[in-house]
C-alpha cells in the first residue's frame, strides 16, 4: 500500500479511529434515493412518513451505514481493506425539512485482533443524542 499508512500504534486494541460528524439534509436523501433506487416514500415524503407512525422523514438506514463506513475506509486508506461490515439500525435519523438537516456523529475503536490478523473495528453512530446504529462492526485487513 502506498498512499496511506495507518501507524502501527493505531492498530492495537483500544485505538480510536478519527471521529467524524456528517450532515444529512432532505436534498441528500432525494439524491440517495435516486442513486440507490430506494424510493421508499418515508425517506422523502413527510405526509407518508407521519401517517405510518414515524416522527418525520427519516434517512435511509443505508445512508447512515455508508457514513459510518467512511470512518473505517478513511482510516484504512484502501476501502477494499473492509472485508466484512454489518450494522443493526437501532433508531431513526430524523431529517427535518430545513437547510441544516440532521447531524450524525460516528466513532470507531479497534476492538480486537482476530487470529488471522484481521482487525475488528466497532462503530457507534449517534444523531440528536440517540444511538442510531447498534452492533456496528467492520472486519478490516490492514496490509503490513
Amino acid at each position: 500500500m502506498t498512499s496511506h499508512d495507518v501507524a502501527a500504534h493505531d492498530l492495537e486494541p483500544g485505538a480510536q479511529l478519527p471521529t467524524q460528524t456528517f450532515r444529512v439534509t432532505r436534498a441528500d436523501l432525494v439524491r440517495y434515493a435516486g442513486a440507490s433506487g430506494d424510493f421508499n416514500p418515508i425517506h422523502w415524503n413527510e405526509r407518508i412518513a407521519t401517517r405510518v407512525g414515524l416522527p418525520n422523514v427519516i434517512a435511509h438506514g443505508m445512508v447512515t451505514m455508508a457514513l459510518a463506513a467512511r470512518v473505517v475506509t478513511d482510516w484504512a486508506g484502501d476501502p477494499a481493506a473492509v472485508e466484512e461490515y454489518g450494522v443493526r439500525f437501532a433508531g431513526p435519523v430524523v431529517v427535518p425539512d430545513d437547510d441544516t438537516g440532521a447531524e450524525v456523529t460516528v466513532t470507531g475503536v479497534v476492538k480486537r485482533r482476530l487470529d488471522d490478523g484481521r482487525l475488528q473495528v466497532d462503530l457507534t453512530a449517534r444523531s440528536d443524542g440517540e444511538k442510531v446504529l447498534g452492533r456496528a462492526r467492520a472486519i478490516v485487513r490492514i496490509p503490513t
Binding site: F39, N40, P41, I42, I48, V52, I58, H60, G61, M62, M65, P79, A80, V82, E83, E84, Y85, G86, V87, R88, F89, P92, R135
Partner: peptide
C-alpha cells in the same frame, strides 16, 4: 408495501471489490 417497511439490519461479506 415499501412505505410500511424499515430497515432492521444489514451486513456484507466481501470476497473482492
Amino acid at each position: 408495501e415499501l412505505r410500511n417497511i424499515v430497515h432492521g439490519e444489514q451486513r456484507f461479506q466481501y470476497a473482492r471489490p
